[in-house]
Structures are given as C-alpha cells and as structure tokens.
Amino acid sequence: MYENFVGNVSGKIKNTVERGLVKRFAESIGDAHPIFIDEEFGKLSRFGNNIAPPTFPRIFDSGSIEGLKLPEKGLIHGEQKYHYTRPLLVGEEIYCWIEVKDYYEKKGSNGLMGFLAVKRYGEDADGNIVFTEEAVTIITEAVRKAMNV
C-alpha cells in the first residue's frame, strides 16, 4: 500500500521557532526551565538566546507527500529518533521537509501490521541541518481494512 511512496519528499516549509509556542510547549512537558522561557536568562547564556526543548520539532509544519494519506485514527506511534547538530534557537527560521524512508509489513498478534518510517529534516537559514527526526508509525490490519487499502 505505502511501498510506492518510499523515497518521496515533500516541499520545504518555513517555520519560526516562536517564543510563545516554545514557552507553552516547555510548560506542557513540565520543563519550564528559564533557558527555554526567560528572555534575560537566555541572553546571559552561552547561546545569547533562549533555546527550544529537543522534542519541539513536533509542532513544525513540514509539508505533505502528494497522495499519501494516513488514517486519522488507530495509528500507533512505535519509535521516535532525533539527531541534533545544535539546539534550536528561539526566534530563528527553520526550513522543514519530510521523506518517506521505508514501509514494510510484519505479522503480529493483531494480524499483519504495517510500519511506515518517515524522516523529517530541519535546516537553518544558512542551509545547515539542525535536526532530523525519524518516526515509525504502526498501522494495524484492522485500520488498513477499514481504509480499504
């Protein structure tokens, strides 16, 4: 079903690491450290700025892969992997895109499970990769049947 999408890439989308969103995100994971949310504290830090928590890219818009539709319900998040070259800085612009890395099926206790691996890239305004994020989503047989795919 999803095999045909492997290798497909979305267009790049510009995102801003917005101060207000970083604050809200840090608070929502119980990590309201001043390095994320206190402007003066950030200025005095080694970054001269505030930074964002490592799982913050969750909120970035990375565009979409043409024709690729996932069920709205019943997905299981299997794995998540981040790689950083440096922390994200509050206020900077990050260009994001996604690539379908892999799709395979495995027999499991709930029938034939589909595993979709998608990698997201984030680069700064100078074209340097700041982070990558790899997610494996599990699609159960019941869900695929309901979608008719």
């Binding site: 830090s45 490592p54 799982t55 794995e79 070259t85 922390p87």
Partner: peptide, 29 residues
C-alpha cells in the same frame, strides 16, 4: 501521547545546557 512522555524525559538533561546538548535521542514506545 507517547511524545508527552518522551518530552518529559528530556528534562532530566535540561539543567546541563551550558555543558552540552542532546545530540541523539532515540525512543521506543
């Protein structure tokens, strides 16, 4: 959300931001 738990766990490292950063963070739910 699995990512809520993963996000929470990262805070163990936040106080050490002057020393370094999380270069790789890999989780299985």
């Amino acid at each position: 959300h699995g990512m809520w738990t993963m996000g929470n766990l990262a805070k163990l490292f936040t106080p050490y931001y002057e020393e370094g950063f999380i270069e790789d963070y890999e989780i299985r739910f």
